[in-house]
Design a protein around this nucleic acid. Sequence first.
DNA 1: GAAGTTCCTGAACACTGTCAAGATACTGAC
DNA 2: GTCAGTATCTTGACAGTGTTCAGGAACTTC
Lengths: 220, 220
Amino acid sequence: MGIAERRQRQRAALRTRIVEAARDILSAEGLDALSIRSIAERIEYSPATIYLYFRHKDDLIREVVKAGFTRLAESIERAVAELGPDPNSAEQFRATGRAYARFAVENTAYFRLMFELPKASRPDCLPPAEAVPLPPWHTDLVTLVTRAKEAGLTNAGDPAQAALVGWAVMHGLASLYLSGHLTPALQGPGELAELVEAALATLWKGWKVEGTGEPARDRG
Amino acid sequence: MGIAERRQRQRAALRTRIVEAARDILSAEGLDALSIRSIAERIEYSPATIYLYFRHKDDLIREVVKAGFTRLAESIERAVAELGPDPNSAEQFRATGRAYARFAVENTAYFRLMFELPKASRPDCLPPAEAVPLPPWHTDLVTLVTRAKEAGLTNAGDPAQAALVGWAVMHGLASLYLSGHLTPALQGPGELAELVEAALATLWKGWKVEGTGEPARDRG
DNA sequence: GAAGTTCCTGAACACTGTCAAGATACTGAC
DNA sequence: GTCAGTATCTTGACAGTGTTCAGGAACTTC
């Protein structure tokens, strides 16, 4: 039954071609240009065809968003890896935050899509029950804080909670920046980076053991 | 020239009626229901009429957003005022953060509109140069930190920077919560409040003078 | 009452997501 | 090789969106 397999392969190929086209349009022309028709034109198919591969536009977008999350995760991993072997907790923490903010600034449309997706439609519907899994960097941050705790470098409470707060800080800065609410407070583009550093430093200090001076190296 | 004045008054009245209709639809039916036609129907005018009062839908929305910001500012002021006379810096800081998060949760559609407006249209356009003025609570936070600094309670660097970081933390938590990215980490609705408290505590502690124990009262 | 101004509307345009019905091309069986 | 069946794609429409523009109605001024 090689035929059935080939067909399945072709189906899968076209499906990913659709997602890639959507991703490209998003990166190159922005969210407003991302319509079913523009995607269809790009892949040289009829708009209706897309509905043979995705039930709704939202389903397609969700796939794009998923790709965005793995891209963001990769950026962070790369940034942490560039620290060299055995970086200490603080460095690792800062690198994660920096990479997050940087991704947001460099992939505006993508970043916004990733976090503004859940339709603001319903008036006061709370977040969707449908599971949006926690991103990998959250897990990494948790182990980071846990390790720092074990090394006696911090007395942060629940590591999971601390990780969420860390994520929130970076996300808040990126989000406010992208929505333009930070511009009156910032002179140049470099000042966002400063703000990021200040935020990371404050957080890390807030977790530090009382009386400890400079953060010691926990590894290597 | 009473006639000209009356006309001007009527014009202004209809204009605010449009904004109020938009605000009501947004609160009651959500962002998706907020169309030029739905607003027109609500005020019993033709859709085209709205364009005699607003050049584009975005201009109208901007007005709604502005109203939302004053509402949020009022919520925060109220929360701070409820602390009673001469609250200390930490309490005031926490109250601000709590009120912010609460507003976001209780006015989902409004909150999202306020911060997701700047069209994600362009691919990598950085935030709009058009001045979105800094909200009043930012100024309040700045004076808060400044006062705390003068009282020797904190050695936070630039108070303006600290205020932005504080804002970012709350905004990040709210934003992540509303986009559903926090749900897998939270058991119940009360846990967001816990997270908010943890974040505020961490921040405040990160600003504290080295070696200081419990935050002292700076006033009263 | 005529002329002029202001305000509003009906109807259209180009766009959107979405879908039912039909055309097309490929497959398997006789 | 032909025919039925199936998988795939397209045509053309529907209802909705923001937006514009020519024209009509009401009011004001002369």
